Amino acid sequence: MKKTISVFVLLLTIVLFSSFNRENAAPRLYPELDRYFAALNLKQVDQSHAQSLENIKSNLSMSNMDRADWNIIFYCSENSFRSQASQVFLQTLSFANKHKNVKVFSAGKTASGVDARLIDYLTQIGYKVSKTERRNATAYEVRFSDQADPIVLFSKPASDKSLPGSDVTSVIVCDSGKEAECKDIQTSSLQFKLPFEKVETADARDKAEKVLKHIATEMAYVTNKRN
């Protein structure tokens, strides 16, 4: 009888230990993405962004104490490049760093389309991207893990009804001081400024990639629980 109880206790211990390990294991990104984000230097954030980054990081940390969703919307002029990239990177890294209640969106003062250079870059660094359709326009499903739902990228204005209207952190990623089309973006909450350099249609590929890496680095910074 004692032997039977001992075996039962051993099996129960193994099951509980395995369950604990599964729960506490970091969610798995695709290997190429793991390598990409691991190689980013988190000391290379823009010091002029420091206050906004700390505010976003603080809000993100507080979301872990609440069971309700924490919504963040990145706004830009046309919702084609910087805001879309910020959405993808923050959602990916929130998942990887176990910020469980984070829901990330993006919008623009106007809508245009998702920049092909962003899609090329995401594919290059390890995302699995497939073309789809949303509201009779081209959209993209962006996958970063087989354990998570894809991100659906499509361009939309700030007035779009698919965007959350409450419990929102609003972040402006275009520069209203330099870009006239970025002024007067209406948001549903207090705005944080996180201006990234604008990439023009005629700009070379290396400039686009530099800006995207900068965005990825700052999204990695705010989601990193160790810094």
Score class of each variant (00 low, 15 high):
132 T>Q: 04
152 V>M: 12
154 F>Y: 14
147 Q>E: 08
115 D>T: 06
112 S>Y: 09
152 V>W: 05
118 L>C: 00
156 K>C: 11
157 P>S: 15
130 S>W: 02
109 K>Y: 14
108 G>M: 11
127 Y>G: 01
107 A>K: 05
118 L>F: 00
147 Q>T: 01
124 Q>Y: 08
120 D>L: 09
139 A>E: 10
150 P>E: 07
121 Y>N: 05
126 G>D: 00
111 A>I: 10
116 A>Q: 13
122 L>S: 05
151 I>R: 02
128 K>L: 03
135 R>H: 14
122 L>R: 04
137 A>V: 13
150 P>G: 08
110 T>H: 11
123 T>R: 06
132 T>G: 05
152 V>T: 14
127 Y>E: 03
135 R>W: 12
126 G>I: 00
150 P>V: 07
144 F>C: 02
107 A>G: 13
129 V>A: 00
134 R>K: 15
118 L>G: 00
139 A>P: 10
155 S>A: 14
153 L>Y: 07
117 R>H: 07
131 K>S: 14
129 V>D: 01
150 P>C: 07
108 G>C: 11
107 A>P: 11
123 T>E: 06
120 D>C: 04
149 D>P: 12
150 P>N: 08
114 V>R: 03
129 V>F: 01
149 D>V: 08
146 D>F: 00
111 A>G: 12
143 R>I: 00
140 Y>C: 06
106 S>K: 11
118 L>P: 03
117 R>I: 06
108 G>H: 12
142 V>K: 05
140 Y>K: 05
110 T>C: 07
110 T>F: 10
148 A>W: 04
111 A>F: 13
133 E>Q: 11
127 Y>Q: 02
146 D>V: 02
145 S>P: 07
157 P>T: 15
108 G>D: 11
112 S>W: 06
110 T>N: 13
127 Y>P: 04
115 D>W: 04
139 A>I: 09
142 V>T: 07
